[in-house]
Every structure is written in C-alpha cells, then in structure tokens.
Design a protein around this nucleic acid. Structure first.
Length: 269
DNA sequence: TCATTAACCGTCG
DNA sequence: CGACGGTTAATGA
C-alpha cells in the first residue's frame, strides 16, 4: 500500500554509459577498500595499481566459470556479481552476491587451482584483476597483506560452510528465513519501515541462494508478506519483523554465527 | 515474458 | 496420516 516513493530512480541496465574506463583513482580505491591491503602504505598500493588490469563485463556475462584455471585475483570495482555453483540438474546454488570493493575466489587466487564457482555480472561491471605473479610479489613484500588475506579467506570459508551445512539441517522455510537474515547482515540498511536489503534480487535469486525451488521461495515469501514480516518493491526486500524471522529460522537453537555475513569493516576488531 | 497462484503428488516422520 | 516441498499447469501483470 505505502508507496516506495522513487520508482523513477530504477536504473535501466539496458543502456548505461558504463563503458567508460576506470580511473587510476578508482583502481586505487578498490585496492584500498577491498580489505586485503589494510596496513599497506599508500605508495605501495600505487605500485600495485600499476600492475593491475581492469576488466569489463556487461550484465549477464560470465566473469569466469567453475573449473576454469585461475590466473589471479578478481576485485569487484563496479557493478554487481552473482557467484554460484551449477548443479547436475541445472539448478544454480548461489554462494554469494558481491558488491564493490569485494575480492572473490580468494582460495583459487592463492593456490592457483580452478575456480570453485561461476561468477556472472548482474549489472555492467568493472573488475580489477591482479595476476598471480603480482599476488606472489605482494605476499612476499607485505606481512599485513598476508594476514588480511588469511582473515578474508576464513570469512569466505565460514560463509560457505554455514550455507552448505545449513542446507542439510533445515527445511525450506527456515532456509529462506536464514538467507534473509544473512542478506540483512550483508546489505541491510535502516529504512523507515524496517530493515531494507539493499540489493536488487528477484525471487529466483532468493530461491537459488536458499537452495529451494522458485515456487517454494515464492510461496514462503508470499506467506511472509501476508503476515506482515516483509514486503518487496522493485526487487528490494524490506524486512519489517526481524524477530519473526529469527524465530522462524530457529536462531536460538542455531550455533552458527551469521554475523560472518556482515561486511568485515562494519564488524572489525 | 516473467511472477504468482493453485492443484497435485511423492516422500518421510 | 499429514506436513512438507517439488512439479506442473493455469493465471495475471
């Protein structure tokens, strides 16, 4: 009933002027903000800018595919990326929705093994790419980079572990509730009517993230909407009753720490 | 075309 | 049996 108020601002991803190149300042900002180089002096980051490459991907194209050999580290500088596995039956299991300035597939970047997921650009995106050779050099030169990378890698592992383990422990309703809570940790911002998940997601995205069928996700989200727990406008989900969500997902009895899904900067220590 | 609803059906506790 | 969730078809925007 209540009007979202700004339907005109819906970005048309069909014709953005996004083909503009990234400035060195933007590359620097991505490197500086990605969390891996905290504690590394700015002038050293500038040296890294010099060896970084910038890759462009239009919406809907793959950045890499699961199983591809990894040749370096990707850092999302602009746009949005969907990271997922493709199951034998064709279903997609989303392991992450990325937002700048996020590093992704750290494990593959570090050990040089194949990518463990497929990454598709949701919007026109820019990626800062550091070749493996540069990574080795950075690791050799900067102790902080090594520490930060280990911490970030741990976050990645824990997030995936929670997601995959949860799938074996919970039913569809609980899974959807958990996913909403996790997304709220990651992208939640305060809104007048509750907590808004600041990331445009269709129902299929939610379903693939929770590991349930599209119709099941729709059924559950529809029920939750009727119960006044949330509402959706223009692919943005607003959570109005977090307490109801956490009771639905049985958070009390759960030993997993969902705060690992929050961005590291907002939860650092 | 895509989101949603509804009816149906097999599985499992 | 009955809840649950996947499958399928019909309907709606």
């Amino acid at each position: 009933m209540s009007t979202p108020g700004r339907p005109s601002s819906t970005l048309e991803k069909t014709k953005p002027p996004g083909s503009r190149r990234l400035t060195p300042e933007q590359v620097f900002a991505t490197l500086k903000g990605c969390g891996l180089l905290d504690g590394v002096p700015d002038e050293d980051i500038c040296d890294i800018v010099a060896v970084a490459r910038v890759l462009s991907f239009s919406a809907g194209t793959d950045i890499y595919r699961e199983g591809d050999p990894c040749r370096g580290l990707h850092l999302l500088a602009k746009g949005r990326v969907r990271q997922y596995h493709i199951a034998a039956d064709g279903r997609e299991r989303v392991v992450g929705f990325l937002v700048p300035p996020a590093p992704f597939e750290l494990a593959a970047a570090i050990d040089g093994g194949p990518y463990t997921s497929t990454a598709t650009a949701l919007d026109d995106s820019k990626v800062v790419f550091l070749p493996s050779r540069a990574l080795v050099e950075i690791g050799r030169a900067h102790r902080f980079a090594r520490l930060n990378t280990m911490m970030q890698l741990c976050r990645e592992i824990r997030r995936r572990d929670i997601s995959s383990t949860l799938a074996t422990l919970k039913g569809a309703k609980e899974l959807v509730a958990c996913v909403l809570i996790q997304l709220a940790q990651q992208y939640g911002v305060a809104a007048p009517d509750g907590f808004r998940i600041d990331y445009r997601l269709n129902r299929q995205d939610v379903a693939d993230r929770a590991g349930v069928r599209l119709e099941t996700a729709i059924r559950i989200l529809s029920d939750l909407t009727k119960q006044g727990v949330l509402h959706t406008a223009d692919k943005i989900i607003v959570l109005k009753d977090m307490a109801a969500l956490s009771s639905m997902s049985d958070c009390e009895a759960c030993h997993f720490d969902c705060t690992i899904f929050a961005s590291p900067s907002s939860h650092d220590r």
